[in-house]
């Protein structure tokens, strides 16, 4: 498959490049643009990024491989990144992970046959107070997961409904009763 950026995307890339004194710092943002467009940064996409920015292919490859959020191969339509790290671990992150695995019939790291879901076990996503939680395809955070909530989210995704952003407000100290 041949991967190309559109004129608009190339313009957007020029705007990004202008933020820095050289082209290389645009590597991460442009890999993002590519992944958002193509759904992954497989080697041919990495080459496109390298070509577009005039950078060595090995450089772009090394960067893509260093950062875990870039999908080095095609994933399911929805990637479920379940946090199992520290606070999520002790608040039931693994229960949620295993529940999802059983529900979708795959292990983490795998994609369902219909290419709909990929499950990943991930490190801390910075939502420790809202554990357990997951992120969907590098996008929305779904917090305070329970089995019921997982069922609802999966059902919604199957119908093309992405969960909405959940604001997690600052906590206020409750006045002491005594």
């Amino acid at each position: 498959m041949k991967y190309e950026f559109t004129e608009d995307e190339l313009k957007q890339i020029e705007v990004i490049k202008a933020r820095y004194p050289e082209a290389r710092p645009a590597t991460l943002p442009v890999l993002w643009i590519a992944q958002n467009k193509f759904g992954h940064v497989e080697p041919d996409v990495q080459k496109l990024v390298a070509r577009t920015l005039g950078l060595p292919e090995a450089h772009v490859h090394g960067v893509a491989e260093f950062y875990t959020q870039y999908y080095k191969k095609e994933q399911g339509k929805f990637v479920l990144d379940v946090c199992t790290c520290l606070s999520c671990q002790i608040c039931g992150g693994y229960d949620i992970l295993h529940y999802l695995e059983d529900k979708l019939g795959i292990k983490h790291g795998e994609t369902t046959k219909d290419k709909m879901f990929t499950i990943q076990q991930v490190e801390c996503l910075g939502a420790c107070g809202y554990a357990p939680m997951m992120q969907i395809t590098n996008g929305v955070y779904v917090n305070h997961l329970t089995r019921e909530k997982v069922d609802k989210v999966i059902h919604g995704l199957k119908n093309g409904e992405m969960p909405e952003f959940e604001p997690m407000e600052m906590r206020k100290v409750k006045p002491q009763e005594n």
Binding site: P56, A58, H59, E65, F66, T68
Partner: peptide, 9 residues
């Protein structure tokens, strides 16, 4: 030649 990189982590 910039042909090499370290891969993975």
């Amino acid at each position: 030649s910039y042909q090499l990189t370290i891969t993975k982590r």
